[in-house]
Amino acid sequence: MASSQRNPRGFPAPPLFIGLAGLGAAFFLLPLAGLLVRTPWGSAWQLLTSPEALTALRLSLLASLSATAIALIVGVPLAWIFARIAFPGRAVLRALTVLPMVLPPVVGGVALLAAFGRRGLVGTWLEQAFGIHIPFTTAGAILAESFVAMPFLVITVEAGLRGMDLRFEDAARTLGARRWTVLWRVTLPLVRPSLVAGAVLCWARALGEFGATITFAGNFPGRTQTMPLAVYLALETNPDAAIVLSLVLLAVSLAVLIGLRDRWLGAS
């Protein structure tokens, strides 16, 4: 007969320890509760469908989906190389490509300016050769989001590739399949769950991006003012709108969590 305090797989925890866990849980739940309590439900729909909110929503969708597409196009090959090819400096390169996951996003924004800004390493040349100016454009917002979000896709897909049974690829090769065919018909379908999870994580991170975007791309409605920027600015002029927009981002995050529950929550 186990007492209610008894962990089925271990020693009975001291009550204080359980209490601290409760404190930890409350710390996460209270802000969410606060947001729900402060939501002006009566005018929520009206605030959400205001031209300003819709503009930010539209731009956020466009930018985050584009960032996810970029991540898929260059991030999957990168993940493949990290998983399959041993080359000198791989560990260092890998560490540097996932650095944005822990780097303060504002620093990411400053670094992007140093690279793609008008006086940046590549930016100077882009401007002189093609007249391309990335900061203050939607392309800049997309770039900022890609920079911060792509690592989530890379490490998820890399883990999938490492866990994959290579014999399927070998079999396809011996049967005469060309390299692209093996990649498209064997490798990628086999890591589909990782691809989906990585893309969703990447998209969610891109949707929430703030620091790199406001630093690198600036803030202009319809061009670079994504939802998180709109929330930040609305808090000063129209707090109710800020709360409603926050609620939308919260709902999206919850949906992502529920969608990926098998990965994170369904382990039991």
């Binding site: 006086r119 203050f136 803030n219």
Partner: peptide, 21 residues
């Protein structure tokens, strides 16, 4: 037609000092 609407005056200054604006 501003390229960006910054959140404080120092951010405007920084964008010009960096040569972005």
């Amino acid at each position: 037609k501003p390229a960006s609407e910054e959140t404080d005056v120092k951010a405007v200054l920084a964008k010009v000092a960096l040569g972005e604006a």
